[in-house]
Design a protein around this nucleic acid. Sequence first.
DNA 1: GGAAATCCATGTATAGTTGCAAGTGTTGTA
DNA 2: TACAACACTTGCAACTATACATGGATTTCC
Lengths: 153, 153
Amino acid sequence: MRNTVSAADATLLVSRALLGVVARSVSSALEVVTLPQFRVLVVLSGSGPMRMGALADHLHANQSTFSRSMDRIVAGGWASRSTSPDSRREVLISLTDSGRALVDEVTERRHREISTILERLTPTEQDSVRAALELFAIAADEYSVEELLVLGI
Amino acid sequence: MRNTVSAADATLLVSRALLGVVARSVSSALEVVTLPQFRVLVVLSGSGPMRMGALADHLHANQSTFSRSMDRIVAGGWASRSTSPDSRREVLISLTDSGRALVDEVTERRHREISTILERLTPTEQDSVRAALELFAIAADEYSVEELLVLGI
DNA sequence: GGAAATCCATGTATAGTTGCAAGTGTTGTA
DNA sequence: TACAACACTTGCAACTATACATGGATTTCC
């Protein structure tokens, strides 16, 4: 039991460190889009083109709110509207190249920073870190990743 | 080198999982304060009472912006203004009990969720996770945690 | 003691998010 | 074909964040 507590504490520490990495990786994107807007881009990046309504639902946003927000995202050139081939009343949202690049840039920067951190460890240590983190990731897997959207990550 | 990449990938996975935890832990607080407001509470929670100016600097916010934001935080009962004993032109901001409780609640929830995840592992696995996470935390330590403020964490 | 500096609040302005309600166009159905 | 349901947009309205410039009070320094 004591070990559980210790491990949880260590995890809190790591969560701070990782969140620092995440925050830094996102901060550059936040110079050109807002956090709610970036959320949208992240969802699109993971899902491919989506209908307005589905996207709004996914983000727990009001339709009107989302429609207006999308106006700005489209105006910024990060995504585009198009009529769905299925139905002319449906509007599909797709990432533009800029939008995809913005999301990719954030992911890549994050990956790069993590690698930099890990390179400070010996190969043996890296192995144990990898193994342990995989264990943790698997144990955490039951938790849905949906809530990430709260932070737009 | 391959190990570095693998460990980085594993870490990305974990960062997602941890971010899910963080996002969930923060989401309840975000029902009563905004993210920028929560940022302020987190800083106060870690530092104790602070001057308006210092707090604004710490959050990279404009003085006027911050003053107005603080109006809302104080109106919400999360923090309070008081004249500094050092100088009557200085205004000290302190967390109220509500404000402290709000931050604590988030931290506790996060800790609880992490513990829950770890309890799915065997004691041996927990030990190795703890050891690995400590390694990572140490390696990451050189990275400033300042940027956490971007996300208000 | 008076000028300069400091600290904070206000005036003013812009932009973004949010949500309810109403409107437009499209599709499905009786 | 007419009516209902659906998908999205717009009208309105309130709130928040942000920042530049200004003003008021207090302290510091010459």
